[in-house]
Simulated assay, not measured.
Amino acid sequence: MPNFEIMDTTQTSPNIPIIYEDNHLLVIDKPAGVLSQEDHTGDPDVLNLCKAYIKKKYNKPGNVYLGLVHRLDRPVSGVMVLAKTSKAASRLSYQIRKRTINKTYWALVEGQTPVFGEWVHFLEKDNRSNTVKAFKSQKRNAKESRLKFITVKTNDNFSIIEVDLITGRPHQIRVQFAKEGFPLWGDHKYGNPQFARGKDIALRAVKLELEHPTTKELMILKAPKPTGQPWSMFEY
Results as ranks from 00 to 15, higher is better:
Thr215Cys: 06
Gln172Val: 07
Val163Lys: 03
Thr167Glu: 13
Val132Trp: 00
Val76Ile: 15
Leu66Phe: 06
Phe149Glu: 02
Leu108Val: 01
Pro75Leu: 10
Val152Ile: 09
Gly111Glu: 06
Leu68Gln: 03
Glu209Gly: 15
Arg91Thr: 15
Asp22Thr: 10
Ala142His: 13
Pro230Asn: 10
Ile220Val: 12
Thr113Leu: 03
Pro183Ala: 05
Ala89Gly: 03
Ser77Tyr: 08
Ile201Val: 07
Leu165Tyr: 09
His171Tyr: 05
Pro61Tyr: 03
Gly33Cys: 07
Phe122Gly: 02
Asp29Cys: 09
Glu5Gly: 10
Phe195Ile: 06
Val46Met: 11
Thr154Gly: 02
Lys103Asp: 05
Arg146Trp: 14
Phe135Arg: 01
Ile161Cys: 07
Trp119Ala: 07
Met7Leu: 09
His121Val: 11
Gly168Ser: 01
Lys103Gly: 01
Leu68Glu: 00
Gly191Leu: 01
Glu235His: 07
Lys189Ala: 13
Asn59Ser: 08
Thr113Val: 11
Val69Glu: 00
Ile173Arg: 05
Glu124Asp: 13
Ile160Val: 01
Asp164Cys: 10
Ser129Ala: 14
Ala223Cys: 04
Asp8Tyr: 08
Pro75Tyr: 06
Lys179Ser: 14
Lys84Tyr: 14
Lys30Ile: 03
Gly42Glu: 04
Ala223Tyr: 07
Ile6Val: 13
Arg169Ile: 11
Asp156Trp: 02
Asn141Glu: 15
His121Met: 12
Gln112Asn: 14
Asn192Gly: 11
Leu184His: 02
Asp22Ser: 07
Leu218Lys: 03
Leu35Gly: 12
Arg97Ile: 11
Ile161Leu: 01
Pro183Gly: 00
Leu210Ser: 07
Glu180Phe: 07
Thr41Glu: 13
Thr151Asp: 01
Ile101Phe: 03
Asn48Gln: 09
Asp45Lys: 11
Leu92Met: 11
Gln95Tyr: 08
Arg74His: 12
His188Val: 10
Pro17Ser: 04
Asp22Val: 10
Glu124Pro: 00
Lys143Glu: 08
Leu92Lys: 10
Leu49Asn: 03
Pro114His: 05
Ala83Ile: 10
Ala52Gly: 12
Asn3Lys: 14
Val163Tyr: 07
Gly78Glu: 04
Asn130Trp: 06
Arg140Gly: 10
Thr104Cys: 05
Lys143Ala: 13
Arg71Phe: 15
Asp45Ser: 08
Phe234Gln: 14
Val152Asp: 04
Met80Thr: 10
Asp156Tyr: 09
Phe177Gln: 06
Trp231Glu: 13
Gly33Gln: 02
Pro17Tyr: 06
Pro61Glu: 04
Thr41Asn: 09
Glu235Thr: 10
Glu21Cys: 05
Thr41Tyr: 04
Asp200Trp: 08
Pro226Glu: 13
Tyr53Gly: 13
Asn48Val: 15
Arg91Lys: 13
Ser129Glu: 01
Pro213Asn: 01
Lys56Ile: 09
Thr215Met: 06
Ala32Tyr: 05
Pro31His: 11
Lys143Tyr: 14
Asp73Cys: 15
Pro14Val: 12
Ser129Thr: 12
Gln95His: 09
Ser129Gln: 10
Arg197Phe: 11
Asn192Trp: 02
Leu35Thr: 14
Leu184Ala: 02
Ile6Tyr: 08
Ile28Tyr: 02
Gly198Met: 14
Leu147Cys: 15
Ile101Gly: 06
